[in-house]
Design a protein around this nucleic acid. Structure first.
Lengths: 110, 110
DNA sequence: TATTAATATCGTAATATTGCAATATTAGAA
DNA sequence: TTCTAATATTGCAATATTACGATATTAATA
């Protein structure tokens, strides 16, 4: 096989997995960090910032977009990419929740 | 190819990517949620909770462990798995940071 | 010691991901 | 309209992931 049985899991589990998976590559982490570092979202130079060929970067951007992590608008000759606050917030909330629940555990373990 | 060029990225980018990737599957999100839901970390019944065969669950646990998301101790006949607070905290911090930086952007875009 | 229960490992098939060269597309500039 | 720059798409090879049956391991129990 190889395909994951998404229908056996909850909507929330699938959504979180899709978002986390999209972040699960160093190039895509780098893209996210770069988008954060620039003031506006008009960033026609993502390709020059990454140590990867242009088609590869384009593919990573596509995956981030498909997952909903970034949004992309055509801005004349260039493309304007920026982070999707809602998606990031979902991940933020999830990990904040996990984090707080771990530390509030009464019984210590492992 | 297929292998990612981890050496071209920063340590932080690689670490975050490894952690996020481990969370990037609904079964592993479910495992994390289940580990959170039980009081102690002695959980010999993860297999019964997931809609997957035992070897598959074992494999997912191994991946979570390899990435550092969970820790596992042998507890007699069963295995005691629990979340690794430090790893979760790293992800939490990252998304908290991304989230806060997005909302503080002066120029709106997209 | 034999049995049982819990978990891991092996082997393998199906599919997905990663990366890039070549090529296409698209919009502005000359 | 032709050229150029920016980005996307296609095609393909290498590798990784996912899933599970079969089997191994390991420790408690009868």
């Amino acid at each position: 096989m190889g395909a994951s049985k998404t229908d056996h899991f909850t909507e929330e589990q699938n959504t979180l997995a899709i978002l986390a998976k999209a972040v699960g590559h160093p190039a895509r982490v780098a893209i996210i960090q770069y988008l954060l570092s620039v003031e506006t979202c008009i960033c026609g130079d993502i390709v020059n910032v990454l140590p990867l060929a242009q088609p590869t970067v384009s593919q990573h951007l596509k995956e981030l977009k498909n997952a909903g992590i970034i949004k992309g608008n055509i801005e004349g000759n260039a493309i304007c990419y920026c982070l999707n606050e809602e998606a990031v917030e979902l991940l933020h909330q999830f990990f904040a929740n996990v984090s707080s629940k771990i530390s509030s555990k009464t019984k210590s373990c492992c």
